[in-house]
Each structure stands twice: as structure tokens, then as C-alpha cells.
Design a protein around this nucleic acid. Structure first.
Length: 588
RNA sequence: GGGGGCGUAGCUCAGUUUGGUUAGAGCGCCGGCCUGUCACGCCGGAGGUCGCGAGUUCGAGUCUCGUCGCUCCCGCCA
């Protein structure tokens, strides 16, 4: 018995032909006489029929069929009787009258129904992932993922990029995330690190003269998990020589357009909008703004700096800011309880409070109105476009706190107010990032992107004198408020690289030990180069319309980094540990 | 490291507020009947370590403490 068709393939045009289908039993409907079975494979479903009048022996055998049995059936395609077609099913006009049945395998009763709509505990799903993956939505997600990867490869191949592999067993990089370590048996006491990204290797490939590189590659970061974060994740990694920002962005836009074309059959408009980091924070509070809706933040620090409301005036005096968010027409949309919940919501981001004003016809209903002069009120009303029916929220604190709190509140409000159109894909490049930020905990500067990002030409001389004001040549691609890619033009000159490493507080000995190979390579004829990496899982989460990155990964890990199918991670045997020269000290 | 939610039949959940008879429902499963269903229908049945462990109590699914797992978020991480 050899399969002739997939279960989505047959239609009225095939009536009369003998076919062989193979697949899983979605459902069996036994009428005592005739038995119907919905046979499912990865492509679709076909109803197959066992009729006692026509094939008594086969019909008898069909009684034993149960859900998820694997069947091979031979039969003739027949048009369904008048009025018996199923418009819900692609193959609903026909059915296969079975003349030969092979039970290829039996199956335990599945732990849950193989259907999209059944909401099953994630625990149960992950323990039975092979069954979970039979659900149509996950089959679709992984097929879309395949299509996207194929589209990316086709596009990049066509643009002259070479797919070159880089090592997984590599060296720990000190910046950024925690590394996964792999002990070396041949060098007891020494460890490989799994790459957080192939960053340095792709730069070395540019120095080697490959000019255009890409790789769809697994990366590893040993940090706590989130709905959009897994300890191992996939990047579409790109690097190109003799390229500036515009060149990389042009390729990136083409790549994204190709993926949307092949996966969603949708044309995205390029080039994408660009916005500076500064503008993003100022208008949206976050460096990954969701630009599908308005509700922008507005700075009123200057208006309230001298006001009698000490929370506002005091924040400004301490170097902070006061920003507002006008929810137009929402004065009566939210109850007092809901407004209190928003205060609770922003407290997560360390905001100490959330002031608000309900704009009524003749008054401002708010606990804080009394603190402001008429002039201040007038300025505020003008700046914030306050009209009767509006509800305005205020945050006052250090700018980082205000921006983060109101930035997240903005999204929270937009969801509640149904301001977000899920069918829209809004891209925006974020540019002109600061090169460095000050790490209060470690009392030193840190690279915002990574230490190989080039500073902006015009800011170069401030590297030593005013490091925080130096902008970098980095860029992030943001889609619907989610960062899906980021990259930069790299430093390709040894002297500049050393200056940057020193600005990060590294001494000669330190950088020589950690990055000696890179510095030496930069000195060997390194071309100007830059690149970008896309978070493939995150992109797929958006393309699939999923809520979690786990819905686009075949075998994801739980929040504690466990694989519930294989029970990884697991202990190691004494022999293994001895070979590696390791001793496990269990924390109490 | 911290905060929130969840954990009761194979699955989804009710019951927990106010401790008290034999812990229920839908779906699934098993058996019987049924020749045109497609969430087939009808009849009958089985199925429970109330996550786990202590404690309070005459009595705990319900109260207390601890612990494990899943999840969302903060920190962390681009």
C-alpha cells in the first residue's frame, strides 16, 4: 500500500479514482451501520467511509478504530450525497469509500483533544509535546517558520550572502548576558561557552574577506525566561563589508519584505520609518515604541517646575521630569477603582504614584487640581489639548522611571481602549542610541549595544571627555512595539576599538586577554563593516499571531529552563564528573 | 532574588468566602443501540493521592505553615 494523496488534495475532480490515504484518526462516528472516520495528515483532513453493504469485512474491522490510530486506507473517491457536503472542510464535497483498511499503528487515548480551541495546561502540553504538536495551530506555526527561514535564505543567497557556520563551543565573552558553560574534558578546569551570538566570528569573517555573511543560528543566554525569551533562541545573523547604516537597513528591509511576502502573502512598504532613540523615549517612553496608535507622552516639566504641587515641582528640582498622557474622551470610561489599579500597574516600574485629572465641562475633577495656579492650568490644558471628557495621567520622577512607567501604561491603556489594530504591522527603525550607559551597581560605563559598536563620527572626540553624550552607529528594528532586530556599524580600526574598551573601564591587560585576537585582527586589514541580527523566534511569534515564543518553537523550555519531555537538565554520573574534573557542591 | 495567578477525574472547570452526609458538571473513555454523520444521537458504566508534606480540629478539598510544578511580571537579559 502506497500513499497517493495528502488528506487535503482530493476534490470533486477526483471522483471515481482509486486513492490511498495515510494519516491519523481525528474522529470516528459509528452509526451502527455506516462508519465515518476523519483522517488527518499534516496537510488536511478527508472523510473516509466504511459501508457494511459494500465491504462487510472492512466495515467489521473498522469497529476497532480509535482516535489517533494511524491508518492506511484504499478506496474510491465519491461525491457526497446531495445535502451532505461539509463546507467547513476543504475536501467537504467528497469522501473516500474504503475497500481496504490497514491499521498501521494503534494509539493510547490521547491526554487531550487534538484541536485548536482546547485550552490545556502548559504543563500537560509540554509533557506530551509530540501530541501537542499535532494540533493544527502548532502545525501551521512550524510550517510558517519553515517558510520564513526558506524565504530568508532565498533572499540572502540572492543578494550574495554566504551561509557560513561558526562554532558553538567557543570562548566566554565578558559583556552582556550570563554564558552557558561546557566543561572541557581534555582541559580539566577549563570551559567553553556557548555563543550568545556569533558576533566576533562574523566580524572575523569580514576581516577574512567574505564580504557578505549570514547564518540562521542558535544562540544561548543563561538568563531568566519570559513570554518572549528562551535560553536557546534563533537569530538570522547578517554581516556585510564596505557597508554603512543605509546599506544594512536596505538589506534588512528587503529581507523582512521577502518574509512577509512568502509567509503572509503581504506587501510591506519600504523603506521603514526612522526615529531617534531620543524621540522614541520622549514620545513613547520606550525605545521600542508601538506606533500603531497615538496616546503619546508629553513633557510638562517646565510648566509645573515652580508649582505648589511638591510631587511635581520637587521631581523637577531633583533633575527629574513630569510627563503626561491624555486619554482622550476617557473621563468616564474608567471607574475610580480602575484608576487605582493603574497606580498599582505603574508601581511595578518603580513609579511612586500616578496623578490624574478628569476634565469635566466646568472643572477638573482631581485630588491635585487645587495645587495649580490658573496660569499653570491654562498652559497645561493647552500643551496637553485637554478638553471636557478627557482623562489625563501624570508621572513625576527621574526620567527613566517616568518614561518606563508611562510608556508601559500607554500600552496597557491602548489594550483596554481597543486602540490596537492587530491586522496592522508597523515597522520603525530606532537610531542614534547612546553608546554607553552608567551602571550604578558596578560604578562603571557599559555598552548599550556591545563594545564593538562604532561611535558616531561627530561624537568621537567626546569619548573620553563626555562619554554619556556619545551616540553610537547602532540601529534597532521595532515591529508593533517588539524589538525584532538590532545591529550596528562596527569598529574596524584597532586604535578606536582600544579607546572604546578603555572608556568601558578596561585596562590594557584585561582587553588584551579577552579581545586580543580581535584587536590583532583589526590590525591586519579589516574592512569597514556592519550588520544586524534578527530575533527569529520573536518575529515568528508576531507573524503567527501568538502570545508566546513557545508557540513557534517545537520543543521549548519552561520558565525554569526545563524540557518536560526529556526531563533536561538532569544530573551527571560520577564517572562523567570525574572525567571532567568536576565536583558538584549542592547549595543548601 | 522578589511580587501576582494557577494546581480538584484523562482534559477544562465548579465546590474553598462560612471546615460537616457519599466531592460534582461538560468533554473524553468503556459497553450497548443506531445506515449519512461531520462537536452524530440515545441508554448505561467506569474513572479522584483534591500537587506533595506537616499542623490546627471531634472532623480539612476548604483554615495555617512549608514545599514542588506551570505561568505572568520586576530585577536580569537586547
Amino acid at each position: 500500500m502506497r500513499r497517493t494523496h495528502h488528506c487535503n488534495a482530493l476534490s470533486a475532480g477526483d471522483v471515481g479514482s482509486e486513492v490511498v490515504l495515510m494519516g491519523w484518526v481525528q474522529r470516528r462516528r459509528d452509526h451502527g451501520g455506516v462508519i465515518f472516520v476523519d483522517l488527518r495528515d499534516r496537510e488536511g483532513m478527508t472523510q473516509v467511509v466504511f459501508n457494511p453493504d459494500r465491504e462487510p469485512a472492512v466495515h467489521r474491522k473498522a469497529h476497532g478504530i480509535r482516535s489517533e490510530y494511524v491508518l492506511g486506507v484504499r478506496g474510491v473517491v465519491e461525491r457526497r450525497p446531495e445535502g451532505m457536503t461539509n463546507p467547513e472542510l476543504a475536501t467537504g464535497e467528497i469522501e473516500v469509500m474504503v475497500s481496504e483498511l490497514k491499521v498501521l499503528n494503534k494509539a493510547r487515548t490521547p491526554p487531550f483533544l487534538i484541536e485548536n480551541k482546547v485550552e490545556v495546561n502548559e504543563n500537560t502540553r509540554l509533557q506530551n509535546r509530540h501530541i501537542d504538536l499535532r494540533r493544527p495551530v502548532l502545525q501551521r506555526n512550524l510550517m510558517m517558520r519553515h517558510k520564513a527561514a526558506a524565504a530568508a535564505r532565498a533572499f540572502l543567497n540572492d543578494q550574495g550572502f554566504l551561509d557560513i557556520e561558526t562554532p558553538f563551543l567557543t570562548r566566554s565573552t565578558p559583556e552582556g548576558a550570563r554564558d552557558y558553560l561546557v566543561p572541557s574534558r581534555l582541559n580539566p578546569g577549563s570551559f567553553y561557552a556557548l555563543p550568545q551570538s556569533p558576533q566576533l566570528f562574523k566580524q572575523l569573517l569580514m576581516i577574512s574577506g567574505f564580504e557578505r555573511y549570514y547564518q540562521i543560528v542558535r544562540c544561548f543566554r543563561d538568563e531568566d525566561l519570559r513570554a518572549d525569551r528562551q535560553p536557546e533562541f534563533t537569530q538570522v545573523d547578517i554581516e556585510m563589508s564596505f557597508a554603512g547604516e543605509d546599506d544594512v537597513m536596505y538589506v534588512a528591509e528587503g529581507l523582512i519584505a521577502a518574509i512577509f511576502r512568502d509567509v503572509l502573502e503581504m506587501e510591506v512598504k519600504t523603506p521603514f520609518d526612522r526615529m531617534t532613540y531620543h524621540e522614541a523615549l520622549s514620545r513613547y517612553g520606550l525605545d521600542r515604541p508601538d506606533t500603531r496608535f497615538g496616546l503619546e507622552l508629553c513633557d510638562i516639566s517646565d510648566i509645573v517646575a515652580e508649582s505648589g504641587f511638591n510631587v511635581f515641582a520637587g521631581a523637577v528640582k531633583k533633575g527629574g521630569i513630569v510627563k503626561a498622557l491624555n486619554a482622550k474622551g476617557c473621563a468616564d470610561f474608567f471607574t475610580r477603582k480602575e484608576i487605582d489599579d493603574f497606580t498599582e500597574f505603574v508601581s511595578v516600574y518603580r513609579a511612586k504614584g500616578l496623578a490624574w485629572i478628569r476634565v469635566k465641562e466646568n472643572e477638573w475633577q482631581s485630588p491635585i487640581t487645587k495645587f495649580f495656579t490658573e496660569a499653570e492650568k491654562k498652559d497645561m490644558a493647552e500643551r496637553l489639548d485637554m478638553e471636557p471628557g478627557d482623562l489625563v495621567f501624570f508621572g513625576a520622577d527621574q526620567s527613566a522611571v517616568v518614561n518606563e512607567a508611562l510608556g508601559h501604561l500607554r500600552i496597557h491603556l491602548a489594550r483596554k481602549l481597543w486602540l490596537i489594530d492587530d491586522s496592522v504591522y508597523r515597522f520603525v527603525w530606532i537610531t542614534d542610541f547612546p553608546m554607553l550607559e552608567y551602571d550604578e551597581a558596578e560604578k562603571r560605563y557599559q555598552a548599550l549595544h556591545h563594545p564593538f559598536t562604532a561611535p558616531a563620527e561627530s561624537d568621537m572626540e567626546k569619548l573620553e571627555t563626555d562619554p554619556l553624550s556619545v551616540r553610537s552607529r547602532a540601529y534597532d528594528l521595532v515591529l508593533n512595539g517588539s524589538e525584532i532586530g538590532g545591529g550596528s556599524i562596527r569598529i574596524h580600526q584597532k586604535d578606536l576599538q582600544i579607546r572604546v574598551l578603555e572608556a568601558l573601564g578596561m585596562n590594557r591587560e584585561e582587553y588584551a586577554e579577552k579581545f586580543g585576537f580581535l584587536i590583532s585582527a583589526l590590525d591586519s586589514g579589516a574592512p569597514p563593516h556592519g550588520g544586524i541580527a534578527f530575533g527569529f523566534d520573536r518575529l515568528m511569534t508576531i507573524l503567527c499571531g501568538s502570545q508566546s515564543i513557545r508557540e513557534v518553537i517545537a520543543f521549548p523550555k519552561t520558565q525554569k529552563g526545563a524540557c518536560l519531555m526529556t526531563d533536561a537538565p538532569a544530573g551527571a554520573s560520577r564517572i562523567q564528573l570525574d572525567e571532567l574534573g568536576l565536583k558538584v557542591v549542592r547549595p543548601k
